[in-house]
Design a protein around this nucleic acid. Structure first.
Lengths: 207, 207
DNA sequence: TAGATTGTTAATCGATTAACAATC
DNA sequence: TAGATTGTTAATCGATTAACAATC
């Protein structure tokens, strides 16, 4: 299967939520141009994305929704469970902890880490919080393979190194730091300030 | 000036923070390949980005840091102030409110909105929180042109419509909803779940 | 000058778009 | 069949990479 870019994954995720609504309304088939208008993309884009995941439509009838959902879920959702850790239970970390549960399929928040003793040992939104000292031990024990990094910038690289050493393979980085990781590790940067600066830039340009 | 993509803006932002550290260490000039290694990109990439913002280097000496900072800031930071509103002071909204102040240049958080009466009227991290009923009035009065959307998915489109009607021109969308907006409005989607699903997908693919 | 840098140019790669033929 | 859809193909566009000439 070909590589999927962020945009494709993002669109597939969007299609899926639309399809589930359509299915709830007892529709069996859906035309690509209907799906396209609901997801705000072009019909051709929809068809290409769906071909990519291996789903075929029928001319004059469209795509079978149940079939489509199955195909998209196969690509989007892990066949096996991924186990996640959140490192850094500050304001942002807590917000993510409260937001995620129930919104993911086959992605399990298995642990949270923080240095603050007032947080460790507690259960936060159903997730056990451990001391950062125990990172190595817990990451291995819980077979965690993806981490969400919401620590202060100053310690971001150190924490990353420890995570990588203990077998982490994917990283969602909320810090503004350019993390240095081995090639095999996938890092996704998500900086709110950068996004806002980009929006401000585009707003000025379009004016 | 040509269009700048998200990646360019992201890199420029990264260069800037590195340059400011270098300047603090009293360095006057910096070679592109040094900057490149610090930002984890190729030297050619750095040079292209810097040419794009109109900065010129000197062979055998490199780029003058002060000059460079000026050029990047000119592109990255607004010449005039942008005023932001945050709509939806839930867990995520609060986290963003606490995170942003002091991290932005020429971007001012002018107001927050929520329906919950226990939050309205208060000052949250230095930002006044208003009732959602007063959205139209306040957005106009405060000349807000960019909004951060952290409301529940169910009301996202409604709130967006009201924001657009009152002159918002850029939108950072944290909801999973595909917002329908006029062409002139720039929407940036930032969905944590989608990012995690992408990471999980890439982790599986690389395995 | 020699060496290491810079800016420039053409080539590559990926994703998107547009035009077309095939299908029910 | 006719009409509206689908899959396929070639063309376009943008960003990145690689190779080169110019500069201090």
């Amino acid at each position: 299967m070909a590589k999927k870019t962020h945009m494709v994954i993002c669109r597939l995720s969007r299609y899926l939520s639309i399809l589930q609504i359509q299915r709830a309304e007892d529709k069996k088939y859906l035309f690509s141009h209907i799906l396209a208008s609901l997801a705000h993309v072009t019909p051709a884009q929809v068809r290409r994305d769906l071909m990519m995941v291996g789903a075929n439509g029928i001319p004059a009838r469209g795509y079978e929704i149940a079939n489509l959902v199955r195909h998209i879920e196969k690509v989007l959702y892990a066949s096996h469970e991924h186990r996640l850790a959140l490192v850094g239970v500050g304001n942002l970390g807590r917000a993510i902890l409260s937001y995620l549960p129930g919104r993911m399929t086959n992605l399990v928040l298995a642990a949270a880490f923080d240095t603050n003793p007032s947080k460790t040992g507690k259960l936060l939104h159903g997730v056990r919080c451990f001391s950062l000292d125990r990172l190595d031990e817990i990451v291995k024990r819980e077979a965690i393979d993806i981490a969400i990094l919401t620590v202060p910038a100053a310690v971001a690289q150190d924490v990353t190194d420890r995570l990588v050493q203990n077998g982490i393979r994917g990283l969602l980085n909320f810090t503004a730091v350019a993390l240095r990781v081995p090639r095999k590790i996938h890092v996704e940067d998500l900086d709110v300030v950068v996004s806002l600066e980009k929006i401000a830039y585009l707003v000025r340009e379009k004016a």
